[in-house]
Structure formats: structure tokens, C-alpha cells
Design a protein around this nucleic acid. Structure first.
Length: 464
DNA sequence: TCTGGGGTCCTAGGACCC
DNA sequence: TCTGGGGTCCTAGGACCC
């Protein structure tokens, strides 16, 4: 299996002369989808992320950024900064995924080599596509057309595009003119663009690396390029040092690789309150193991290493893992191992987070041929205490801000707020004008959770 | 009542093997 | 009374990305 190559000096050869790598970054993506589907939020600050006491911001709309809301900030802090009337919404991932798929399909129309980096980001190798004019004018026109098609197909979601001679330059380009930007870095001008930038703009330079670099007087990429390879290796390690040395010279031959295979599957959860009860924690593990097992089976893969992650009350985080002789995709096996790892690690002082993951993945046809030989993974003494039933949550817990709902009489809408046995819903959809707000009983039988609305204007064929 | 969730890659030490 | 060297696997932790 081909490993994605890091840029290494000795390996750089045959550097592209054409601006043939495109990077697309959808603008404030989650918030943009929310504003599309919720007309009353257009032009207003929207924050998408965790809405509980320990939530963080996933995406802030540009209107919310004007007040200082940022990704990765705690939602509590964002609430402090944003004015009344700001919408704080939990994510609707199926809606984001659908919109993302429409965009990725448009990209695949340009080239078979599309590397999706995340739900809202991708690289395209234009040289692998057919019939593209790879001159600066040619790719500029191509990008304009692409941006128009994206906006039309997604109901107005915009993206920023960068095009250059490598992934590095393409990504920097898409970052230079957000939102709705388009920047082509002409081949030959890479160092002129690169060297004035702060080092923190390079991928792989986070807070820890930035601090080390600043300590030796490196603030810009140009400063970085003045450092010797041995100096950088001594500073940040072998692989990272060599990578930075190359990037500072705009030497980047990383290929655009479609369909990377997953290396691990995991699920983790931060609890509203720290948990100490081992019975409750055991039940949480079972739920997470079930989700991980389901995803493994859906992907027809299984893995040998089970990892339990825990974060204690004081935010110290640790992992414990165990590797099996045979891969598994079985939720009970995964849960049994994770439960044992928890019993060994202990929940003293309380846990704010638990996670269950499986790695060491392989495509493995699960057979029971050797099931009888399988060792029992759980000794009786390792069992966590049995679960006790908790009281049912109040009815309003069914609802969360941003959620799509359908009401028997009032039609389609979304949840604005909840509490005290009531739920507030705004009745509108992507193709309606801003709609009215109604407060209903949280247990109103006419109110149901619904699928995301369709944003597409119906075509003649569909209506006729 | 600061600090998510899903990932990737790298490093380093110890066990173990030849 | 001196004690290799290289490779691989496992475990744990850390940095980073979106």
C-alpha cells in the first residue's frame, strides 16, 4: 500500500511546472448549510457546535466571527461574545454530508484524482483530468466555472479555491482570499508568496512547533528557509524537521491520493458531568463499542487493537490498548476489552470523557472457523458492576437546537429552543420566506423529528 | 460553569527474535 | 567482569488537522 509521501529533499524531483493542483475549502461550511436551510438566519450570526455546557464551536458564520466567535472556542465563550439573537445550533451532519457529496461529485467531474481531506475540503489533480488548459488564465476560468456550479448545486454555499503547482501552494491559495475567494499562484512565484508568510501558516506548525521555532527567531517561512536541515531536525525531530525544510523551499511532491483507507475507527463522548459510577461507565462503553462495531461491519473491515481513551476530571488524558491475535468487528468483544481496560485504569476522581477505538485494521472476512479456539477475553473478576436503570429524561431532551422537525398542522420547521416542558419551533424551510415561531408542548404528539429538508428548487420533470 | 469529536502521523522504550 | 546490532511488534503519549 502506497504511503502518502512526506516532502523530503532527496525525493523531490520532477517538480510540477504547471498550476495543476486545486484546493477547495467550503466557507464556514456547517453555518452556511444552516443559513441555507433556515432563511431567518441568513445574514445573522450562527454558531454550530456543541450546545451543552461543555460544547465547543465547530463553525461560526462570518457574521458570528465579527463578534469574535471562533472554531474550537468553548460555546460558553462564544455565547458571551455574541449578541442576543445569535443562533447556537447542534450539528445536522446528514445535511452537511449530503451537500458535501454534491460538491465532491462536481470535483470528480474535473478529474478522477480527487482527495477529500474532510467534509468541507478537497484537493484535485487537474493534470489527471482531461482537456484542461493549465495556463494561469485557463485554470482561473476553470475555477470560476467550478465556483458557480458549486453555488448553484448547493443552494448558495460558497467555496474558496486555490490553485498552484503543489498541494502546499494550492492550500495557501485557498486561504488567501476567504470567503468565496479564488487565488492562482503562478508557477515560478512560489517563494515570493511563501517566504513573507508567518510559519504558522504551514500545515504541521501548531502551537508547540511554533513556540520552538519562535524561540530560535523563526517567525516567517523565509526565516525557516534560512535554517539548516540538521538544525531543524535537532529542533523538531527527524521527520518533522525534514518536512519543514522542504516546505520552506516550496518543495512539495505529495500526490493527490483518492480513497485513502481508514486506519482506525473510534467513538468518544464528553459527558455533561463527570462520571464515577462504573456501572454507568460500563454502559457507556457498550454503547460506544456498538457504534464502532457497526461502522467496522458496514466498512467490511475489522481490527486487532482495541483502545480505551479516558479523560479525567482534571483533563489529564490517557489511553490503554490491547492487541488481539485475530481482528474483530464484534461489539461484544470490543466492549469486553474496553471494560477490562477501564477496570484496570480506574475511574478515580471522575471521568469527563470516554472513548473506544479499534485500529490495526484489515479487510477480514469474519468467519467462525476458529471461534472455538478464541481465548475468552474477559475474566469474571474484571466485570464492571451491572448497570442500574436511570430515570427517564424529561420530554424536552428529545429536542435540540437546529433539529429538523415536522408538525402535523404547522408543517416543516426547526427547533430554536427547549425547556420547561416546551419546545420553540420556527416553521420555515430552504425554499420558504422566513417563517413564524410557535412554542409547543415538548410532548406534543403532532411534533416529530424529521429528515433534513431538500434545498433544491424542483425541476420541471419533478413538478410535471 | 474553560477546553468536542474524528482522525493521522511520529517518537520512544521494552520485548522478542535472529 | 563482559555484555552486538538490527528489525518488528506492542504500548503510550503527543502534536497536529479539520
Amino acid at each position: 500500500m502506497a504511503r502518502p509521501s512526506r516532502p523530503r529533499v532527496e525525493e523531490v524531483r520532477d517538480v510540477r511546472r504547471e498550476a495543476s493542483v486545486l484546493h477547495l475549502d467550503l466557507d464556514a461550511f456547517f453555518a452556511a448549510v444552516e443559513q441555507r436551510d433556515k432563511p431567518s438566519l441568513r445574514g445573522r450570526p450562527v454558531v454550530v457546535g456543541g450546545v451543552g455546557g461543555r460544547g465547543v464551536v465547530a463553525t461560526a458564520s462570518y457574521e458570528a466571527r465579527a463578534y469574535g466567535a471562533r472554531s474550537a472556542m468553548s460555546t460558553a465563550e462564544a455565547r458571551r461574545r455574541c449578541p442576543a439573537g445569535t443562533a447556537f445550533l447542534g450539528g445536522r451532519f446528514s445535511a452537511y454530508r449530503r451537500t458535501s457529496e454534491v460538491v465532491m461529485e462536481l470535483l470528480r467531474g474535473l478529474s478522477p484524482l480527487v482527495e477529500q481531506v474532510s467534509i468541507d475540503e478537497a484537493y484535485v489533480d487537474l493534470a489527471a483530468g482531461e482537456g484542461h488548459d493549465l495556463s494561469v488564465d485557463g485554470v482561473t476560468a476553470l475555477a470560476r466555472g467550478l465556483k458557480e456550479r458549486i453555488a448553484a448545486a448547493t443552494g448558495g454555499v460558497t467555496g474558496s479555491v486555490g490553485i498552484g503547482s503543489s498541494k502546499l501552494m494550492a492550500k495557501l491559495g485557498s486561504d488567501m482570499d476567504k470567503p468565496d475567494g479564488l487565488v492562482v499562484v503562478p508557477p515560478g512565484t512560489e517563494l515570493d508568496v511563501l517566504h513573507p508568510l508567518p510559519v504558522t501558516r504551514l500545515g504541521g506548525v501548531g502551537p508547540a512547533t511554533a513556540e520552538r521555532l519562535h524561540a530560535v527567531g523563526v517567525r516567517t517561512v523565509g526565516d525557516l528557509a534560512a535554517k539548516s536541515l540538521p538544525d531543524l531536525v535537532a529542533l523538531v525531530g527527524k521527520a518533522h524537521g525534514a518536512g519543514l525544510y522542504a516546505l520552506a523551499r516550496a518543495e512539495d511532491d505529495r500526490a493527490v491520493v483518492p480513497d485513502r483507507e481508514a486506519k482506525s475507527v473510534s467513538h468518544e463522548e464528553t459527558f455533561e458531568r463527570d462520571l464515577t459510577d462504573l456501572a454507568v461507565l460500563g454502559r457507556e462503553i457498550d454503547g460506544m463499542a456498538a457504534r464502532v462495531g457497526e461502522r467496522l461491519r458496514k466498512g467490511a473491515i475489522s481490527g486487532r487493537t482495541v483502545t480505551l481513551k479516558l479523560r479525567r476530571y482534571d483533563f489529564t488524558t490517557l489511553t490503554r490498548s490491547l492487541t488481539l491475535p485475530q481482528p474483530t468487528d464484534d461489539a461484544c468483544t470490543i466492549a469486553a476489552i474496553a471494560r477490562r481496560l477501564l477496570a484496570e485504569a480506574g475511574a478515580g476522581g471522575g471521568l469527563r470523557l470516554l472513548g473506544v477505538g479499534v485500529s490495526g485494521l484489515s479487510v477480514y472476512a469474519q468467519g467462525d472457523l476458529f471461534a472455538e479456539d478464541a481465548e475468552p477475553v474477559l475474566e469474571a473478576e474484571d466485570e464492571l458492576p451491572a448497570a442500574v436503570d436511570e430515570p427517564l429524561p424529561p420530554p424536552e431532551r428529545r429536542w435540540w437546537p437546529g433539529q429538523d422537525v415536522q408538525h402535523g398542522d404547522l408543517g416543516a420547521g426547526w427547533v430554536w429552543g427547549r425547556g420547561l416542558g416546551r419546545v420553540t419551533v420556527r416553521f420555515e424551510g430552504p425554499l420558504t420566506p422566513p417563517g413564524p415561531v410557535r412554542t409547543l408542548a415538548a410532548d406534543d404528539p403532532a411534533l416529530q423529528a424529521a429528515d433534513p429538508p431538500d434545498w433544491r428548487v424542483r425541476t420541471m420533470e419533478e413538478t410535471g
